[in-house]
Simulated scan of single mutants.
Amino acid sequence: MKKAEYFSKDFDWDELRVEVENDPSFRYHLVPFQHSLSVAEEKEEAESQPWNEFHHRHASGKFFKERRYLLQEFPELVSCEGNSRVLEVGCGNGSTVLPILRGNEKVTVYACDCSTEALERVKETIYASNLVSIEHRFHTFCCDFSTSGFPTWLNGNPNQANGKQTSDSRGKNESNLNDSHSLKESRCYIGGVDFITLIFTLSALSLQRMPKSIKECFSVMKPGGLLLFRDYGLYDMSMLRFETDKRVGFREYMRSDGTHSYFFCLDTVRNLFTGAGFIEIELEYCCVKSVNRRNGKSMRRVWVHGKFQKPV
């Protein structure tokens, strides 16, 4: 596989911040947001439906690109010990899972998503790639970690080793395993995961639901394990394109298709993860400038890159 070229410091974020905060046309992004109940909270019960429709709409074509640069950003996924387990939260169509499986033939990946449509897409993508021994190292399950939490077999509940069902709220996730190759392992707890990849997933939640979601990640990770984070950063081009009627909270927006997007500053990310018990290893803005080939316009993208470790 050809090594992807990737640059993360094409411009200075502080310079972008000054430019945005002094531009009157962007002022509505900066003012406090007053509400009693956000649109995101009201739609909590039906959160998976917009994403089902989103993945169905983009089932064909080249809307998604394989994120090969992730192996450069997170080389631990390549250099880790054999038999390491990776949990990809919010796997979508597989643009993150595929480069991981290609880059390290010794890892096992558990991929989950709240959208059943996304899970169908990711399985099509992975099994069409003809990767070595894929049936033994790739497993999917349906899960909304922000509401019901992860299934008990993932974080090492010994009841699952004997094939017993649990009575807590997570037990219902046991029946959600939709990959036939996962069924055998679903009845044996795996004792936690070595890595969690949270790539453009957390921003799909309302801010109120993020602390609980990150604590769920902490609970299923082995001591010393790494959570690898990448998501939308404050003043990213896509944030500045939202019109004022799309705001559903401070730095929170609702797209026309019903999907949610939050834009992170470093302090928010730091507080969320350290508040859940993680240790900060790396945290910075990735500032990438790209050019639209159709109109020649330059686009400034801002993402947040982070690595967080569960204490040993």
Rank of each mutant, 00 (worst) to 15 (best):
K212H: 06
L227V: 09
M210C: 15
K222A: 14
A204G: 06
R230P: 00
E216S: 06
D231C: 03
S219I: 00
C217F: 07
I214K: 13
L227G: 09
S206D: 08
I214C: 09
R209T: 08
S206L: 00
P223E: 13
P211S: 08
K212W: 00
L226F: 11
K215Y: 05
R209E: 10
R230D: 05
G225D: 09
F218H: 15
P211A: 10
E216H: 04
F218T: 04
F218S: 13
Y232G: 03
G225W: 00
I214D: 11
D231L: 02
V220F: 11
S206H: 08
V220P: 04
S203I: 04
F229S: 05
P223Q: 12
S203L: 07
G224C: 08
G224D: 10
K222V: 12
R209L: 06
K212D: 08
S203A: 13
V220R: 10
K222G: 15
Q208F: 01
Q208H: 13
K212S: 12
G224I: 06
G224S: 12
D231A: 05
S213V: 02
G233N: 09
S213E: 06
L227D: 06
M210W: 01
D231M: 04
G225S: 14
L228G: 07
S213Q: 04
D231R: 06
L228N: 07
A204S: 15
S219N: 14
L226V: 05
I214M: 09
Q208R: 14
A204V: 08
L226S: 12
S219L: 04
I214S: 13
I214H: 09
L205H: 02
C217R: 03
G224L: 10
G233D: 08
L228Q: 09
L207T: 04
R230V: 02
Y232F: 14
